[in-house]
Every structure is written in C-alpha cells, then in structure tokens.
Computed example of a mutant assay.
Amino acid sequence: MTDLEHDFSGLRAMFVNCTLKRSPEQSNTQGIIDASAAIMTRHGVQVDVVRAIDHDIATGVYLDMTEHGWERDEWPLLFARILDADILVVAGPIWLGDNSSVTKKVIERLYAGSSMTNAAGQYVYYGKVGGAVITGNEDGIKHCASNILYSLQHIGFSIPPGADAGWIGEAGPGPSYLDPGSGGPENEFTQRNTTFMTWNLMHLAAMLKAAGGFPVGGNQRTEWDAGARFDYPEHPNPEYR
C-alpha cells in the first residue's frame, strides 16, 4: 500500500507533555507523542515538543503570574510558542481516573489568554486546531480526553474528528505504555487512533490556514464590544424593557 503524499510544510505543531516526570525520566505519554510527531515531521510539519513540568509554570489564570505575586513564571515564553503553532496537542497521564495536575495547570494557563483577540477581532485561538493524547494503566481515556477537548474548543480551538488517542492497557494496576511486554506500542487500536488523530489535525489545520483562519462573521469580540449584535433577535417579551 502506497504512503499518502501530502505536503503540510506550512504548518507548525506544538505538543505539551503534561507528565509528572521531569526529564530525563521516561515518559509513557512521550511514546505516543513521538509516534504522532513522526508522522507530522514526515509530511513537513515543524514540530515543537515541551515537557511542562521541566518549566517553572506558576499556578493561576493570568498570562504572567509575576504580576500577581509569583516570583517566577515561564508560561509567557511557552504561550508565545503556542501562539506560533497551528496545532496544539495537550498530552498527559491518567491519575485516579482524571487528568494530571500538570494538565489542569496548562489548561488554566491557556484559559488565561483566551480573552485576547487576533487581527480579525476574534478570540486569539481561532484558526488553531486542538487534540489530546492520554496514557495510563487505569481507566479514564475518554473522560480525560473529553475534558481537554471541551476546554480547547471552549476557548477557541477547532477540533477535528477523532482528535484524541491513548493507551491504558488492562483496567487496574499494570504495565505502562513503554514498559517491556506491555503491548502498548504494538496495540493496533492505539496505532490507528494516533494515526487518524494526527492526519485529521493536519488536514483541518491546513484547511484553516488556506482559508486565512476561521471564517469571520458574527464572532468578533471587538465588534461585539463596540455594539454589534450580529442579528441576535430582540427580546420577544413585549413587556421586557
């Protein structure tokens, strides 16, 4: 079977690994990131990978927490790299059936920038595509992925079909994705979902980039603030004043 010939060389992708393990400790989440990134790189996408826990990211919901009592905060530098990307994949492990604390912190800090606007007056993440990668050795892939993907779309990212992938093995304590004999890297379900997710992220990002971003019309925060209501109907109650 012939490999697909596509050139996505105009795209940039960023993977944020929300593992609890500092480098150079092995991250199982990184195993799936590497597989997805390899497909992107093969088709010309510039890939940026960051392990969030290796950086001094403050807790909070402002763009720069040093302006709110924190001595250090590396998030502004990471945020600039995210703004340069067309694709953002938030990846992380499952703990007690939920996303890691690092994943939650990253989502909160992404939210901090969500009120910013782009050149068209839309929210700043409009025109960017989001995905999720989940790993663990306990149940919760769909719950964790749905939380990430809901959060990303709520703040302006576009989500393609099949925008998540993951591996958990058997329910209950057991080997992790990259452990010898786990079967994780050989698992066809994970391979397929990772591949489909990667291609769908690239396809949608390429479509949006070719269109000059997400369509403008009825979604410009700057225009709304200036008084535009984009055909929102007047209140139907005649007694409402």
Rank of each mutant, 00 (worst) to 15 (best):
F230Q: 15
A205G: 13
G156E: 01
L83D: 05
E239C: 11
G169E: 03
L77V: 01
G156K: 05
I134E: 00
W224P: 10
E74I: 02
I107A: 06
I33V: 15
H6I: 12
E234F: 03
D179W: 07
K104C: 08
G162K: 07
A80D: 14
S36Q: 04
L11C: 10
I82W: 04
R229N: 08
T66D: 01
L77M: 08
N147Y: 09
Y111S: 11
S27W: 11
G44S: 08
V102F: 08
E71Q: 11
K105T: 14
Y125R: 01
H6A: 12
G60L: 12
S101Q: 02
A171H: 07
G60C: 10
E188N: 09
D34V: 15
A13D: 10
A91L: 09
A226R: 15
R12L: 04
P175L: 09
I159E: 08
I39K: 02
R51C: 04
A120T: 04
G213N: 09
N17I: 03
D84Q: 15
K105E: 08
F214D: 11
T19N: 12
V61S: 05
L20E: 10
S23P: 15
D84L: 13
L152M: 13
V47W: 06
A165W: 04
D164C: 15
I39R: 05
D139F: 12
L201D: 03
